[in-house]
Design a binder for these strands. Sequence first.
DNA 1: TGCAGTGTTGCTTC
DNA 2: CGAAGCAACACTGC
Length: 330
Amino acid sequence: MPELPEVHTTATILNKLLKGLVIRDAWSGYKSVFHKGKSNIKDTAYFESFRKKAKNRKILSVTRRAKNVLINLDSNETILVHMKMTGHLLYGTYKKNPKHKIRNSKQILNSKKGKIEENWGKEAWMPVEDGPLKDPFNRFIRLVFTLSNGKHLVLSDMRKFAKVCLLSTSALFESEDLKDVGPEPLVPAFEFRKFKSRLLKRPSGKIKQVLMDQSIIAGIGNIYSDEMLWLSGIHPLSIVSRIPKIKLRELYKGMITVLKKGINFQGDSTSDYRNPYGERGEFQHKHNAYRRTGKSCSKKDGGMIKRLKVGGRSAHFCPVHQKLFTQSET
DNA sequence: TGCAGTGTTGCTTC
DNA sequence: CGAAGCAACACTGC
């Protein structure tokens, strides 16, 4: 779920909560997960070295780069967390509950068929103050940090897409994970001229896809790209090099407006985003395009929101006021 | 009941 | 190099 405004909200709250605390220990429930690819705590050996390095380190700050949460330690190392689709960083008091049987829908189905799962009854964590487990978060706790104030920072991740790794802080932005990430859209130095030149790295690309390309601009995903295109009146299939400069200016302003609005409303909980306290954001009540298929466009131009696939993702737009630019300006 | 759809990214193939 | 398609996983909703 998390795009820039959601990750920003999470990182800002965690910075206040965690600054100055010490990580006493780390636990991972990812151990049995087959994982190919680069360093990640889903790899058992990697987790053990991760745990040793994180143990007894003080948290200096929690920041954000693109859609990554960065937990900066006093050892010149940084824990990078990418929440992907269903990751949640939650803060509270948790306890290990070895008696509790964590089951997913497949395991429940198998138990009805009389099959016994190998992982049945494996150790799990649950919140102390919330009583019974509440889905979908507490059933999917994959990583737990025990903190020096007795509280915990946990990563809940139903679909197991989230990535967590430990990197050198001073070489963070040269790391494989971050070196190809585009500029941050909300820093003042990212002026219109730079925005335009970044987009033009994909001159023949469809604008919706290019906006979501993390190597072009950091932090924009499906929801906010739909919203900024709606606001600036540009059809998602428009070809970057065919969009007139005046419309690109509107898109630049729309991008900033929409992302800041997302942050002001503490993110978007259309699906299941929660901040570290488990609270929803409010941006889902402010949509003009995303998931409004069949509803009338609030521009009052008679348009009805349509949906189509762009690069494998759903795009929502108003076919009346969002102009399609595919021909060169003469 | 079954299958399409879900916020993200990375790998493979062409 | 870039673009497209699919895989990673588990659930919801039509």
